[in-house]
């Protein structure tokens, strides 16, 4: 039986093993490769998407779990927080290799939707599950602060 859900605002469907994690449905079947595989065990955050608007690791989310729900990926994320985060990220050249950054950006947007003006410790807490092997953390922190300032203005 197919799993139907909303993906980036449009109807989507997956007709396969309902245990298949959303990550692989997105990447291998629906062609949305912005969401990345980094560990497969919810340790690194590279696979972060929004499920009903909240941060969710797609590598440990069986597609059956998203039936009837709203999935947003890096390709479809929008709104003022998304715009602010994108601009802040680019303005200070956060990415290096870039492979983790979709997940970082999604986590940061998810944070800013809840906390308008996150402190350093709010950022530490929210971003604790997103590994960046290039260690772009100094700039991730700065970009989140910059995005929060831009949202305030």
């Amino acid at each position: 039986m197919a799993t139907d859900f909303t993906l980036n605002g449009k109807p989507a469907s997956f007709d396969g093993d309902p245990e298949t994690p959303l990550l692989y449905v997105l990447r291998d079947h629906l062609g949305l490769t912005g969401t990345k595989y980094g560990c497969g065990i919810a340790q690194c955050g590279a696979c972060t998407v929004h499920l009903d608007g909240k941060n969710r690791r797609s590598c440990v989310t069986p597609v059956s779990m998203v039936s009837g729900r709203q999935v947003t990926t890096i390709e479809g994320v929008a709104g003022k927080e998304a715009e602010a985060v994108h601009n802040a990220w680019v303005a200070i050249d956060v990415p290096q290799c870039g492979f983790c950054q979709s997940g970082q950006v999604m986590s940061a947007i998810g944070l800013l939707r809840i906390k308008k003006k996150p402190s350093d410790s709010d950022i530490d807490a929210a971003m604790a599950g997103n590994i960046c092997r290039c260690a772009t953390y100094v700039r991730i922190r700065q970009a989140i602060h910059d995005a929060a300032h831009a949202l305030e203005a």
């Binding site: 990447r27 994108h86 680019v90 956060v94 990415p95 870039g98 950006v105």
Partner: peptide, 27 residues
């Protein structure tokens, strides 16, 4: 000078080998 790859690496459009899809491809 701004990096040439920051936009693509921020909005998810940057392509890595893992993202390549070919017709009839298996994993």
């Amino acid at each position: 000078t701004p990096r040439v790859d920051s936009v693509a690496k921020t909005n998810g459009t940057a392509m890595f080998t893992m993202d390549i899809q070919r017709p009839g491809m298996v994993h």
